[in-house]
Design a protein around this nucleic acid. Structure first.
Lengths: 130, 130
DNA sequence: CGGAATCCAAGATGATACTG
DNA sequence: CAGTATCATCTTGGATTCCG
């Protein structure tokens, strides 16, 4: 509608949509940690709970369900006593994680710059309380 | 602590942290849309409001402030009457967006597969209501 | 062991009205 | 025009308890 929405920017917007989808999946507070924890082989629920520092049982369950739903992890139940359930990352998860590599690298390189930029902003906009 | 946390996986976890940071910045409901809207040149507040479909004035302001704080957009005020404020993506924002490109491409390729995987999951776990 | 269910606190978002 | 302020609401996440 606005004159800025030319063909080009429209395409970009369209291209951004699926990213947003993936981001929604992967950007939860815990999703990435869980993917990371599952990439190098099957891991049990309780092991995950210990491995992903600070996660609650509830969030672990919820996040795992979502990841499973999106086909990023598989859930395997062994009907033993006591029960045993293993989770592992799928090929998709590995690809997504790989795609995140560039972003990771970028983040690594700019970690400090970003921190100081933020600090500078905060300083500039601090309460002029006195 | 667990035996799975070998040197390798530890490194991966460490590497994942900064990504999580970036993701937190970029993964808001609106951040990406705003970045996209600002990449191809300065854009005014009201134009943004129209350009980013569905965003409220409040969220536009808040998200812009956060992006500015992280150095992803710049804010330029022209002390005219009526006031004029322009926002534009920084070099950082372009780099991040570029780094997201691979993820975008992946998402594009698998968009349908993911959708059907999710549909299948939902079907399999649907209310056995009767 | 591996959850599901419930309750609650905190944060994110939306709607609306007001202002320099 | 470009916000800020306020209030209502929806969503997230944590803590706890119960169960097969």
């Amino acid at each position: 509608m606005s004159q800025r929405n030319t063909d080009v920017s429209q395409q970009v917007v369209a291209a951004a949509c699926p990213v947003a989808e993936i981001l929604d999946r992967v950007s939860g507070k815990w999703a990435i940690s869980i993917i990371v924890a599952t990439v190098d082989g099957p891991i049990r629920f309780t092991e995950l709970e210990r491995s992903v520092e600070g996660i609650s049982r509830r969030m672990l369950t919820l996040t795992l369900r979502n990841l499973e739903r999106d086909g990023l992890v598989t859930r395997t139940v062994y009907p033993t006593v006591p029960p045993k359930v293993e989770y592992s990352a799928t090929e998709w998860a590995r690809e997504v994680y790989g795609a995140l590599a560039e972003l990771t690298a970028w983040a690594e390189r700019h970690r400090e710059s970003i921190a100081s930029a933020r600090a500078a902003y905060d300083r500039a906009h601090a309460e002029p309380a006195r």
